[in-house]
């Protein structure tokens, strides 16, 4: 009976592909250099893919048991699926945004509006433009539209 050595490459490769995926929304999105293009994550995926490849080759070595081959195939497939989902979710879906040709452009007046604040008090844009900051008239207002937490 031969003692089979633990196929660490396949497990580390799989774990690394999970980390490569999660580290984008959890860590790398906070820094502009790693956010605007997810090169850090793609690098991690590259390392993960290399490990998975080595792991699969080891798993399919003639002396390995069937269980090892199954585990190797499953983990490698999951790793590839995670990469596919990453590319789809982070690089493709995030760009499905409306073009917004009708949005106010530079030099145009921003349409006035009234909306409820966190105390359910109605606040208008013209009011905000006139609300002093530390006792002086504001130079302007920054409108940030965001998707929300739902």
């Amino acid at each position: 009976m031969t003692i089979q050595r633990f196929n660490w490459q396949i497990w580390v490769g799989f774990l690394l592909s999970v980390i490569a995926f999660l580290s984008y929304p959890l860590i790398f999105v906070r820094f502009p250099v790693t956010r605007d293009f997810p090169w850090a994550n793609l690098l991690l995926f590259g390392i993960a893919a290399a490990l998975l490849l080595v792991g699969v080759r080891r798993a399919f070595a003639p002396e390995r048991r069937r269980r090892s081959k199954i585990a190797g195939s499953v983990l490698a497939t999951l790793g590839v699926l995670i990469l596919g989902f990453f590319v789809f979710a982070i690089l493709i879906v995030s760009r499905w945004l409306p073009v917004s040709h009708g949005a106010p452009q530079i030099g145009q007046k921003a349409p006035d509006f009234s909306l409820a604040d966190t105390n359910s008090r109605t606040v208008s844009l013209s009011e905000l433009l006139a609300t002093p900051i530390n006792g002086t008239t504001p130079k302007g207002v920054l409108l940030i539209f965001y998707r929300g937490y739902w």
């Binding site: 921003a110 006035d112 008239t137 504001p138 130079k139 302007g140 998707r147």
Partner: peptide, 14 residues
């Protein structure tokens, strides 16, 4: 909303 940011001056002009 799709994400967007506008900086307006005190007259409300973008």
């Amino acid at each position: 909303a799709r994400p967007a940011e506008f900086l307006l001056d005190s007259s409300g002009t973008v």
